[in-house]
Write a protein that binds this DNA or RNA. Structure first.
Lengths: 152, 152
DNA sequence: CTTTGTGCAAAGCCTTTGCACTCGC
DNA sequence: GCGAGTGCAAAGGCTTTGCACAAAG
């Protein structure tokens, strides 16, 4: 993701306001590799700006997604996660106990569908999700509160 | 997925009741390749058993998932989809307009993570989602009502 | 006859929306 | 000052839960 300064510039160029709240949200995302949920961003920003509302967070995150500066990721943990890393294509590792999401920093074989298998779809992206149990959850049975849905 | 008869047998063996409602739910799933949502199963069964409640459908589907006879699939369309095809590993094609989910009937290269990339995870499954626009949505801009969330 | 399942309605969670006030530009 | 942005609270969609009644074994 771009830096706070670059994003502010981008907003101004688009005729949008650069507010304190938005800058704090940008700051919370910059270089963040934890794939936070909207609520986690809200909690993080609230430590600095106590009065910020969840609506502002959702709205700002959705704008960033629309601008293509942020990726929304729904990996079945019950909440949408946001990934600031939109520059290079990468895949994810999801813990089915605690819901943690990790980047996979490895080149995977090129995945493409021959026309025969595409069934008429115009395919625009591929997403690979590895599911398993993270190191922390393997030792002990504790779970991070309020997360993890155990789909399969 | 197993047949209605096999599933009924399985329930009996587990000491669970084989009710008319459950058999109709099994029937609606058998050989179904549309990846229906709970609500779609509900609507389908309601054509035969008018008084069935949504709770019964959710409960039965969740039991089948727990038994491993049905797969729950959250591909970011806003509702969990159910996939009766649990026998052989396969991947999915999701329409980002209408939310339709198709099976990909093709062998993909073996995807595995070397320990270095697994970051301590004990990986148990891999899921590949191809996103794009289905044939129907490419011609015309109409969308299937009440579906499709446009994540990215 | 007992235990499990059912139906209805109400609650829960995440996300979005309506409206008056505030602040960046 | 004007209009986009903000905060609060309330609504919306999907899924789960509580309780009394009905049905399966």
């Amino acid at each position: 993701m771009k830096t706070v300064a670059e994003l502010s510039e981008l907003l101004r160029a688009r005729g949008q306001k650069v507010t304190t709240q938005r800058q704090h949200i940008f700051h919370a995302l910059e270089g963040n590799t934890f794939h936070p949920s909207a609520d986690q961003v809200y909690e993080a920003v609230r430590r600095d700006v106590e009065t910020i509302s969840l609506k502002t967070v959702y709205q700002t995150l959705n704008e960033l997604v629309a601008m293509g500066e942020l990726a929304a990721l729904d990996v079945g943990t019950g909440t949408v996660r946001f990934d600031p890393n939109v520059e290079l294509a990468h895949h994810h590792l999801v813990c089915s106990r605690c819901g943690e999401v990790c980047d996979v920093n490895m080149e995977l074989p090129e995945l493409s569908l021959p026309d025969a298998a595409a069934q008429g779809y115009r395919v625009s992206s591929v997403e690979v999700v590895f599911r398993g149990v993270c190191r922390r959850c393997q030792g002990g049975t504790r779970r991070r509160a309020g997360d993890g849905k155990e789909l399969s």
